[in-house]
Amino acid sequence: MKVDARAFALPLALIVMAEIGARAHGPSDSLAPPSAIAAAFLEALSDGSLLIATRDTLASAFAGLLVGGAIGLSLGVALGAVPALNRALEAAIELTRPIPSVALVPIALVALGFGYRLEIAIVAYACVWPLLLLTRAAVAGVEPRLIEVARALRLNPLARVVKIVVPAALPRIFVAFRLAAGVALIVAVTVEIAVNPIGLGAGIMTAGQALRPELMLAYLVWIGLVGFALNALLVLAQQRLFGRAAQVAEAP
C-alpha cells in the first residue's frame, strides 16, 4: 500500500492549531491541548486502566460477534438455500430488522442486569443482520452449475451446503463478517456509553463527568485507533485470504 505524504498534512495542521488554540484559550473543562491529551494517554496506558477497558470492550464485542454471527450465518445459509423458507420468513425479518439495537438495551437491562451479558446480547442482535442478509444473498447467488455438480455427485443436503455452497459463498461471507466486526465495536462502545459501566465507553463517560477533558479526549483518540486498527486488520486478512475474489464480491 502506497502512502501519500499529503495525507499527513491535514492531521498535523489540525493538531498544531488545536495546541495553539487551546493554549491561547487557557484551562477549560471541556477541551484540552494535544500535549495534555498525550500525557493523559500515557498515564492511562501505564496504570493499566486503558488496557483493562480495552480488554472489556473487545471481549464483549468479539463474544457478541461470535454469537450473533453464528446465528446470522446459519439463518442466512438456510434462507438462501431454501427459497420457500425465505419467502415465509421475509415479512417477519423485514419488520424486525429496523428495530435499532440500542432500543433493546432497556429490555436486556431488565432481563440480564449490568455487565458483559447485557453487552454481548445487544452486540449479538446487531451482528445477526449483516451476516444474515449478506450470507442469504451470497448463498442464493451461488453459481447454479455448482449445485448441479453437487446433484450429480449425489451429495446429501448437509454435504452440499458444507462442501459446495459455503465455500463458494465464503468470500462474500467474509465481507459480511468484516462489516459485522465494525458494527460489533461500535455497538459495544455505544452500549457502554449509554448504560453499561465497563469498558472504553464507560471510561470516556467517567472521564468526561470527572471534568478531565484531557483524559476524555485521550480515550476518544484511543477508541478511534482501535476502530481503525480492527478495520485495517480485517481488510488485510480479507486480501490475504481471498485476494481478488473478495474485491469482486464487494463490488455490487
Binding site: L10, L220, N231
Partner: peptide, 26 residues
C-alpha cells in the same frame, strides 16, 4: 481528495457515540 480523504478514512471507523461525552462537555 489527496489531502483530506485519508483523514476522513481514518475518522470513519470511530464509533460516533464516542463523541457524546465530548459533545456533553462542550
Amino acid at each position: 481528495r489527496a489531502f483530506i480523504a485519508p483523514t476522513l478514512e481514518f475518522l470513519r471507523p470511530l464509533p460516533a457515540s464516542a463523541i457524546i461525552p465530548v459533545a456533553i462537555a462542550v
